[in-house]
Write a protein that binds this DNA or RNA. Sequence first.
DNA 1: TGACACATACCTACCGGTTGGTATGTACTT
DNA 2: AAGTACATACCAACCGGTAGGTATGTGTCA
Lengths: 217, 217
Amino acid sequence: MYFPPMTHTATKTPAHPARGDARLALLDAALALVRRQGWAATSIDQLCRTAGVTKGAFFHYFESKEALGVAAAHRWTEVTTPLFENAAYHRHADPLARILGYLDFRVAIVQGPLEAFTCFAGTTVQETYAASEAIRSACGACITDHAARLEEDFEAALRKYRPRAAVTAESLALYTQTVLQGGFVLAKAKGNAGPLLDGIAHLKRYLQFLFKARSTS
Amino acid sequence: MYFPPMTHTATKTPAHPARGDARLALLDAALALVRRQGWAATSIDQLCRTAGVTKGAFFHYFESKEALGVAAAHRWTEVTTPLFENAAYHRHADPLARILGYLDFRVAIVQGPLEAFTCFAGTTVQETYAASEAIRSACGACITDHAARLEEDFEAALRKYRPRAAVTAESLALYTQTVLQGGFVLAKAKGNAGPLLDGIAHLKRYLQFLFKARSTS
DNA sequence: TGACACATACCTACCGGTTGGTATGTACTT
DNA sequence: AAGTACATACCAACCGGTAGGTATGTGTCA
């Protein structure tokens, strides 16, 4: 997973969310704070302050910080999935056009500060892969599930264009995520989105090389 | 920067390093611990315990945890630079062969646990880019400087093969790092090095497409 | 050659604040 | 009346950082 809206479904986290909204407020606070500061640097107190609830509410819904992390990963999938599902690029009849459209969509949502378009799952898993198997696998599933949607289009593109190279749809879908995640890291290191945009451009060229090698062009 | 030896120059960090070695012991402890646990999860106390020194020694050499982070980034460059500089792939006369050799070398050092071949700079900058400009720029320099060596080979390859596509040596060098960093993230998310190895294979194919398009093949 | 001056390289003990987590109480909803 | 959804108050452990001491040099001059 990857991109995100910084504005949550509940539009704006209120000072005191209505009864029943504390869980969602905490989850959305987690997505926002962790993307900016990382997992370990985000404390439960800060989460509660941002969400406008107390620690009692936190431990009412989550039995530990780790449990919150797992739930936040699920929430991340929940919030990003419709974003990509409703995007216009799915309308293309050609599977390769859909994939390239996905990449263009990625470029289009690169706006605002870095924490507005980087990935919760990628950030979190870097810190927790050795410490928490539960969080690791939840974040891993975020990325794998997101790649799985692309995989279908790659499958179709492979059938249609039959490139010379022996590549699998799964490997290509994962590679797109590799480039995106790496782009996020480089963007953070450089302080701007340039490397991410460049990375996507290189990836598009690779896919064109790969598929157009025997296509109609 | 990226790969690393987990075994330090001072072979093994002793329980109590000899007088004068505390600084290096702390730095090497930082590289090891941060790559496994992340930056924020690594405390000064734990650093001192691992290095076999006390807090007094820590603050004798570093005025803050942030200062240690900056120094560790420099140490990271110091320890990885000779590793790549002494590698055999530099012997190739053809610049493209050197680049492909670099990637093969990357594959060759993917061994042991994840924290043994992932990147200190990439891990650290993900957590600190918003919180510490000093650490961010130090880690950014790690990656940029490492890419700069590759850039020379790309420059030569570009001159020699003159590919049709309008790409710069800098952009290509940065893209290799993007793929590597992204590979590290996916490897952590999946729990194995597969995505990293696959990513490198895709990158090699891209470069071959790009340069062989007008080459002798 | 020795002794004094001084710097470097640490170590022990401690500080206020924050951490993740708990125990208990209360108000609202059904 | 009872369960759900919180809030309040609290805790031991740990956090980054400081204060003040000591052990081990090293340079200087008689």
